[in-house]
Design a protein around this nucleic acid. Structure first.
Lengths: 241, 241
DNA sequence: ACTCAATTGCTTATGCAGTACACAGTAACT
DNA sequence: AGTTACTGTGTACTGCATAAGCAATTGAGT
């Protein structure tokens, strides 16, 4: 099967970079750049124009250096993206002091996580379907969510799966959000709706649901419905055990 | 913000192709290929070597034609991928005859959907974070899930959100599965675990969860936990209303 | 102070990707 | 037979990631 691209990364080097575990150079000219500065610029591009706009050439141009200069700081693009993700995540927000126990805490965690995906939608693509090196910030988010579930009596495996479930929901929302937002997509939606109308007999339940307003823009927070269902389900599991 | 790539597609043309709504050519030499044949070959490559291995050149070579010949059948790569997705999905399985009401039906739907993502993991990337043209098969899957929820008394919006919640879970699992399966990834996991151990004080809950076996390979179906939680949550909502 | 090795940024070059364009041949409609 | 709509092909352009070699810069060891 397949990892993305040719998979030439050296895990040890990549992880050392991601965790900031590498000795500064002893000799040679002073570096004119920092890994951090490169990452900041790259994130800026991704925020403004999407992940596809982040090419090595583009980042280098923004920094007024040659493309190849970047390779003195970062082994390759994959590592740069990993760094971007971890930097964009930042350290996890503390939710331990949210009152009310695991449920409000996990909800707060989800809400902040969701906010992150809204501010940096490219995180979704950056972490999708590729071996992704996990940096300290990413782990801190995971840790925070697990901490919220610590007192529930759930097994470790169940706690872990619960967190993954919530993350999955958030990512799923981020995905949908990326799909429907922009004006160019209106044309797609219009034409698809037309097609659906023409084949309405093949999709009775869908046709009916649309007629009943299933796809109308919601007025409440899109995160809420799924999050409440999931937390209800988890609550039921907790009570049962 | 940003769609992937330069966004030069014509929605009308792309959708017509996807829905098979285009008149066959009246004159000229017989086409030596079919769109369908191209798609089958492309899916074969994606199944065997991942989506990254699917390049126009590669597909063309497999079919013994020039790269540019493909463009007589498909406007561009994005459209090819859309066709691949819809073809790989196939028509939705009927779950209306699954006994026991909405819950077993939706569970059965989820299970078949999950099977699809297992057989064709590239579907995840293919549908991630890009404007994706929805073809008839994709809509039929959506329709089938909505049909399962038709008798529940849920509002159309809630039915829709419920389906999206389940899809999100499935995709989330597919994502995780893509991450951890392969032998090359063992090295990553080992080194990450080492790093985590060295910084264990920064991630107490995570460290504790791992020690308690949270990441041990599960013996039951990975789909089950999340699916049951979600369905429990939905069931609670249905009872309440 | 002098030498040397490590490290910098730059230049040049390779290979692969998607795709635009113009050509020559082919089959149906007039 | 001629026109027209189509076919597959060759060539070419652009953008991408990245490898290799070069000259300049610096600190450590003498």
């Amino acid at each position: 099967m397949a990892r993305s691209k040719t998979e030439k990364r050296d895990p040890a080097t990549s992880l050392a970079l991601l965790w900031g575990e590498q000795e500064p150079p002893r000799r040679g000219p002073r570096p004119s750049l920092t890994t951090a500065r490169i990452v900041v610029v790259a994130i800026g591009i991704a925020d403004a124009e999407g992940l596809d706009a982040v090419s090595m050439q583009r980042v280098a141009a923004e920094l007024d250096v040659t493309t190849m200069a970047l390779y003195r700081y970062v082994p390759g693009k994959a590592d740069l993206v990993d760094l971007m993700v971890d930097a964009a995540l930042g350290p996890a927000a503390a939710v331990a002091d949210v009152p009310g126990g695991w449920r409000p805490q996990l909800a707060a965690w989800a809400r902040r996580s969701w906010g992150l995906y809204c501010r940096h939608p490219w995180i979704l693509t950056a972490t999708a379907m590729r071996r992704q090196a996990m940096g300290p910030n990413q782990l801190s988010w995971l840790d925070a969510a697990l901490a919220a579930l610590a007192g529930t009596g759930l097994s470790a495996a169940h706690r872990h799966h619960t967190v993954l479930l919530v993350i999955g929901h958030i990512r799923s929302l981020a995905q949908q959000r990326a799909d429907g937002d922009e004006q160019a997509d209106q044309e797609w939606n219009r034409l698809t709706a037309e097609l659906l109308e023409r084949h309405r007999d093949r999709f009775p339940a869908l046709t009916e649901a649309i007629a009943a307003g299933a796809f109308a823009p919601p007025d409440d927070d899109p995160l809420d419905f799924g999050l409440e269902r999931i937390l209800d389900g988890v609550a039921a599991l907790i009570e049962r055990s």
